[in-house]
């Protein structure tokens, strides 16, 4: 297998795992942000949104430090897994989760705010359990937000570069993702290969966005 193909598979694996994990934890964070009236909410809201404005290299730099065996998170990881987090796929996954967090949490939060309380109160008076409310009301009524969150999280992770460069480096099959591969080719003046990757990322991202937006538009009309 060529390096680029390996990078493609690794990128897809990373994006898929990141999206799955974010869709598991994201709804809880988004729910709290949507419903809480706590005074500390703006702090956590800012924290979640931080990756949107922060240069990825800043995030990557601090993650690199946290991952090093000299500090607690890195130490802890080394003691249970026997390897370091930095320059590993697991480290990359953690970085991606933080990096793509706002892209998943924000659509969900917006969905939960729009959902409001009315149907949920009706469900309360009908005797619905928490689980029934989630299954029959919250998730179906915010389905669009979940789809948008999944696509945004996935597509954004595909294009990850700065964070990966800092914490993952460039190890084929372990941390070399497509965007890094592209950078490599350009540096080596291999424009033909660079074109293939760049165009591939461009087209696939565009297609994903077109698909999700047309699905959302179609649902508007029911």
């Amino acid at each position: 297998m060529s390096n680029d193909l390996i990078a493609l598979l690794l990128t897809l694996k990373l994006a898929l795992l990141t999206t799955i994990i974010l869709l598991t934890i994201g709804p809880f964070i988004a729910w709290w942000l949507a419903k809480s009236t706590s005074r500390i909410r703006p702090f956590f809201e800012a924290l979640v949104a931080l990756p949107l404005v922060l240069p990825p290299t800043v995030l990557g730099f601090y993650l690199l430090i946290a991952f090093s065996p000299n500090y607690l998170p890195g130490q802890w990881w080394q003691s249970i897994s026997g390897s370091t987090l930095a320059f590993s796929f697991e480290g990359l996954l953690i970085g991606s989760i933080i990096y793509s967090l706002p892209f998943v949490v924000q659509p969900l939060q917006a969905g939960f705010v729009t959902l409001g309380n009315k149907e949920l109160e009706a469900a309360d008076t009908l005797g619905f359990s928490q689980w029934s409310k989630i299954r029959h009301i919250i998730v179906p009524m915010t389905k669009r937000s979940f789809m948008l969150a999944a696509v945004m999280g996935f597509a954004h992770t595909l294009g990850e570069f700065g964070v990966v460069l800092m914490i993952g480096g460039n190890i084929p099959g372990e941390t070399q993702v497509l965007a890094i591969s592209l950078f490599e080719h350009v540096e080596a003046l291999e424009y033909q290969q660079a074109h293939t990757i760049a165009a591939g990322l461009l087209v696939s991202s565009l297609v994903m966005l077109i698909v999700i937006y047309s699905v959302m538009q179609r649902q508007d009309k029911y």
Binding site: E119, E121, A122, T125
Partner: peptide, 21 residues
């Protein structure tokens, strides 16, 4: 006691049916 445990039915002014069903 939670609304669920009270088993009090409530017909709201704005009916509040589940619109997706």
């Amino acid at each position: 006691i939670s609304p669920q445990q009270r088993r009090v039915g409530f017909v709201f002014q704005d009916s509040r049916l589940f619109p997706h069903l």
